[in-house]
Computed example of a mutant assay.
Amino acid sequence: MDTRKILIATKTYPSISKKYRETVCTAGVLLSDDEKPLQWIRIYPIPFRYIDFDQRYPRWSIIEADIERNDKDFREESYRINPNTINIVRKIGTSNNWQERKSLLLPLKFDSIKQIKEQNKSLGIIKPSSINKYYCKPTKREWAPKQQAVLDQQDLFEESVDLEKIPYKFGYEFTSVAGEKHKYSISDWEIMQLYRNCRNNSKANSMEEKEQESLVKVKQKLEELAKNNDLHFIVGNLKNHKNSFMIIGLFYPPIVQSEQLSLF
């Protein structure tokens, strides 16, 4: 394994794994020693909520860790990480209209999903030409029996952590610069947590009312980001379905108004 620097750009909501109980997919940017962006990187698998607290890297942090190519994944961006070596170097803030974050992500921007596929890549960031619609649809409320059985397994050395099944799927319908129309779901952990926070903080009487109130707030937030921010999508494909992509993270710096030339 080599020790490398990585900018953490997004994390997906945890998924159930027979081997690791649960895993999180992290997408980020591999950096040079002097912190210049080199390429997109996928860190998977990692049982994020089960690693030491001090090594649970927040979004927009630069970490240093031992990594190696994941030889069981054909996607060239996929790497394994040794969680015990994770060192959080620093956090990237939002000063100057997110300038440092933009300087690390946007040099690696693609024009469209089509361009990502043409270059045989599986991970990238795009800016949609237009966002046509936000959508939300209900999904199953409970884990499948086999998934629940994995969560119910007892470990003599590790305390189990509850993993809530989110009963809704959120997403955008959009058009790319290449004119392609897409309908992608969002697996960004932040959006799932937004839903949970809105529901848990609701003062409504019934759970149904709490959920409906939280769905309205998530809709408002995602529509506001599309309207008021310079919204980009961090996208990735599925290992077993390389042509199927989803939004794994939202990047939404403020819109910077072009400076107008003064006649005086």
Rank of each mutant, 00 (worst) to 15 (best):
F170I: 01
F174W: 00
I62K: 00
E180S: 11
P253T: 01
D2V: 11
N205R: 13
F251Y: 03
Q260V: 15
T23C: 08
S176P: 07
K91N: 09
K146W: 14
K137S: 15
P253G: 05
Q39D: 15
P167Q: 06
W98G: 02
E159D: 11
R80S: 10
L123D: 00
P37F: 01
L30R: 02
K203W: 13
N228T: 12
K227S: 13
Y20G: 00
G236Y: 05
E209Q: 13
I255S: 06
L108P: 01
Q220W: 11
L38P: 06
G124N: 00
N243Y: 11
T12L: 04
N228E: 15
Y50G: 04
F53R: 13
R80N: 12
P138A: 05
N197T: 13
L30E: 09
P45R: 01
A226T: 06
V218G: 06
K109P: 13
L263K: 12
I51E: 05
R80V: 00
I255G: 07
G28K: 03
R49A: 11
Y195D: 05
S15Y: 05
L31K: 03
T10Y: 01
A204V: 07
I62E: 05
D152R: 01
Q257W: 06
G171V: 00
S112A: 02
Q55C: 07
R21M: 10
I126T: 04
S160I: 08
D71C: 11
I126P: 02
K133E: 15
W60Y: 07
S17V: 03
I113C: 07
N229S: 15
S187H: 04
R49N: 12
F264Y: 12
L38V: 12
L194Q: 07
L30H: 08
R199Q: 12
Y57V: 03
R196A: 15
I86D: 03
P254H: 02
M1W: 08
L238Q: 14
N201R: 14
I131F: 02
S61E: 00
L163I: 03
M246V: 14
E209N: 09
S202H: 06
G179D: 03
N201T: 14
C136W: 10
K140C: 10
I16H: 03
F48K: 02
T175G: 07
L7G: 03
S206N: 00
A226P: 01
V218R: 05
L30V: 06
T3N: 13
H232R: 08
